[in-house]
């Protein structure tokens, strides 16, 4: 599978450099990967432009509320007194509380306004690093135990950092072969049908977005990552993006992957690239 991916990559790279009029030299490898990805982004965003001609691209950061007028009015009422407010405050306290060694998160992340740097592909490690992974690595580097990834303190910290970063623009870069393969892994995951119900993410969040599935309307996939972590009234608290991924996998009767598994990190990377250009506006609140 990897070899086909690489073969595919190579032929596509060859094709784009031909298209570019043979001007690009082979040494500028990163520009080629970014160009391939740019093509995907515009195809993806065009899909939603055609599906919802009246919705402005910027508005997809609001998830299902970008396309569902009635639900949006209720949601705007809720956001008057955001249900995640206390959790963001908790996150701030956690963020500022020193570790046993006297250092704190600020030694890793400054003022915490680092949302736009994640997820990123770390070429030295050869893997995608998400914000939550970086939070735990900061802890471990300072002699603290890692936190559990779905909810609780990690979600509160991530919410505080998202809050600090509001208004930053999503700009995930794919600038190496390794990054491109991780991106392609996420892309393959997103479009593959799985589980006993044989459904892909795209089946619900592209094909069926805007329609009712019983009482639920699946949101457009563009903008999925902008507002996490999310306080869901169903959860009664904040949860991370990977918690939500797990839930959507279970609903179609597929076995969920572990939060921060390579599969979900690559999926997050792909979904983030697809949302390039939107604004980070987390944390969010949802049903």
């Amino acid at each position: 599978m990897l070899t086909t991916k690489i073969k595919l990559t190579l032929s596509l790279v060859a094709a784009t450099s031909l298209l570019a009029g043979c001007t690009s030299s082979n040494s500028d490898e990163s520009a080629d990967y970014q160009a391939l990805v740019q093509q995907d982004i515009s195809t993806f965003q065009t899909f939603f432009k055609n599906r919802f001609p009246d919705v402005e691209i910027e508005d997809y950061k609001n998830g299902v509320y970008a396309i569902d007028e009635n639900a949006r009015l209720q949601w705007e009422d809720i956001e008057e007194f955001p249900p995640y407010e206390l959790e963001v405050d908790d996150g701030k306290v956690l963020y500022e509380t020193p570790f046993a060694n006297g250092k704190s998160y600020a030694d890793c992340f400054g003022d915490g306004a680092v949302r736009k740097q994640y997820p990123q592909f770390d070429d030295k490690r050869g893997e995608v690093v998400t914000l939550e992974l970086a939070i735990n690595e900061c802890r471990e580097a300072n002699g603290e135990k890692p936190l559990k990834y779905k909810k609780g303190n990690i979600a509160k910290l991530s919410a505080y950092m998202a809050f600090q970063s509001r208004g930053q623009i999503v700009a995930a870069r794919v600038s190496s072969e390794g990054a491109y393969n991780a991106y392609m892994g996420g892309k393959e995951f997103f479009y593959s049908k799985r589980g006993q119900m044989n459904l892909s993410c795209a089946d619900c969040h592209m094909r069926a977005t805007g329609y009712y599935l019983r009482a639920d309307v699946p949101s457009p996939a563009i903008g999925h990552v902008t507002h996490f972590p999310v306080h869901r009234s169903k959860w009664g608290q904040l949860g991370t993006l990977h918690r939500r991924y797990g839930g959507c996998n279970q609903n179609i009767r597929a076995k969920a992957f572990k939060p921060q598994s390579e599969e979900y990190r690559n999926l997050e990377f792909f979904q983030t690239v697809m949302s390039n250009g939107l604004e980070f506006n987390g944390p969010g609140s949802r049903k």
Partner: peptide, 18 residues
């Protein structure tokens, strides 16, 4: 069935892009 599904998808996932 799950393995069969997976093998089909690994070969053909690009045909499933809406």
């Amino acid at each position: 069935l799950a393995k069969k599904q997976g093998e089909l998808m690994m070969e053909n996932w690009e045909k499933y892009i809406p």
